[in-house]
């Protein structure tokens, strides 16, 4: 299993960060994809290269501020669980953590790179709007 984790400290309240990170329909605002569509517990995301990924929304926990999803019905991805946490840093600000566990192992690194890019962008969005 390929396992990666990326994190970013964000100078805003956990609740403020959760409004964008915890909303599965707003992924395209910060993650390097071109669009996303949510229907019930399903999400479809489109990449710049034309690839479309179908995902099951596994968990949206507004108390824990944890979002989990799984890539499904994919000819390459055989196992996947993605987890995004927003954690209170104890000083009124937060840490966003994006974790991926999947097979093929190496694809986890690519999602890790996208997560790094996305978390950097969401930090700019949130800190720029404060």
């Amino acid at each position: 299993m390929g396992s990666v984790r990326r994190s970013q400290h964000i100078k805003c309240s956990p609740d403020e960060a959760w409004k964008i990170i915890g909303d599965p329909s707003r992924l395209h605002e910060w993650f390097p994809i071109v669009s996303c569509r949510v229907e019930g517990n399903k999400r479809w995301i489109s990449l710049a290269n034309g690839l479309v990924f179908e995902e099951d929304i596994v968990l949206i926990d507004n108390y824990l501020r944890r979002f989990q999803y799984s890539i499904v019905n994919n000819p390459i991805v055989t196992q996947h669980l993605g987890t995004v946490d927003v954690i209170d840093d104890g000083h009124g600000e937060c840490i966003a953590i994006y974790s991926t566990d999947m097979k093929p192992n190496v694809l986890a690194l690519g999602i890790g790179a996208a997560a790094h890019n996305g978390l950097s962008k969401v930090k700019k969005i949130l800190e720029g709007t404060k």
Partner: peptide, 8 residues
């Protein structure tokens, strides 16, 4: 990286 599905 050459393996760049998200074209980052």
């Amino acid at each position: 990286p050459l393996l760049d599905p998200f074209q980052i």
